[in-house]
Nucleic acid binder design. Structure first.
Lengths: 121, 121
DNA sequence: ACCAGTATGCACCATTTGGTAAGTACCTGG
DNA sequence: CCAGGTACTTACCAAATGGTGCATACTGGT
């Protein structure tokens, strides 16, 4: 236990990336800066409301940088700060794990859904 | 985009460890098997209801192994499966990041709380 | 005039996730 | 007999998180 409110470093890291879309935002921005619309299409199923909200939080936390070209129609670009880049780097092994075990994860998610259906039935 | 429901490997990994306590369970079990009560004390603020629920889910997903000594009073030990160990290994860099940036994270969490208070005020 | 694009706001609602509180069965020790 | 321990259950509730639907202002094209 640390003197802070965190149980360990993992707890602290999760406090920064907690939120359904934040890890995916980091993942996509790790490849380079992107415009808002690009990012939304890359992530796919996120709503505008949530993407904007979580981008604001990441910006406030110093993880993401927002650059407004001050044009019309609006052109805004999001990128990782150096601090954010270190966090994205730390997520890479987890990402690699998920890629490597994609089939196994799909199977366990299917089992959960099957169990869920059974429960509901 | 994969052919599965996941955006990327990170999305898949998060599907396995999603849940407030699961990452912390993995973190503690990475050091070795533990009895139920030990685990609960190590994690600290979790309730029995949630710890048991998330342990069951991790067991069903093949991440955690549960061994009942069949004694009374009950003695049960939880440990990581080989599969679970690979996931815990993939979490280590994130954990190291959190440890390394603990002060910075505490500061940004404090700023959030301060902003939250301002909003409420 | 209308439409589609950009990026974003906001009130209200829905869903998911986590918590509360009380309980179980059995053993041991006082 | 009672209290405290172990590991765990369950109905109901609360809180947190995410979503819906409609809105904004401006540009350029039809």
């Amino acid at each position: 236990m640390t003197t802070s409110g965190f149980v360990c470093g993992l707890d602290a890291a999760l406090a920064v990336i907690g939120g359904k879309w934040k890890p995916l935002i980091l993942f996509h921005l790790a490849y380079g800066a992107r415009r808002y619309g690009d990012l939304r299409r890359a992530i796919g199923s996120v709503t505008d409301k949530m993407l904007i909200q979580q981008l604001k939080e990441l910006e406030a936390d110093g993880i993401v940088h927002r650059f407004d070209f001050k044009e019309l129609p609006p052109k805004v670009e999001y990128s990782l700060t150096p601090f954010g880049q270190t966090l994205a780097d730390a997520l890479k092994p987890l990402c690699a794990w998920g890629t490597q075990h994609l089939l196994a994860v799909e199977q366990l998610v299917s089992r959960r859904e099957a169990l869920g259906l059974k429960r509901i039935a």
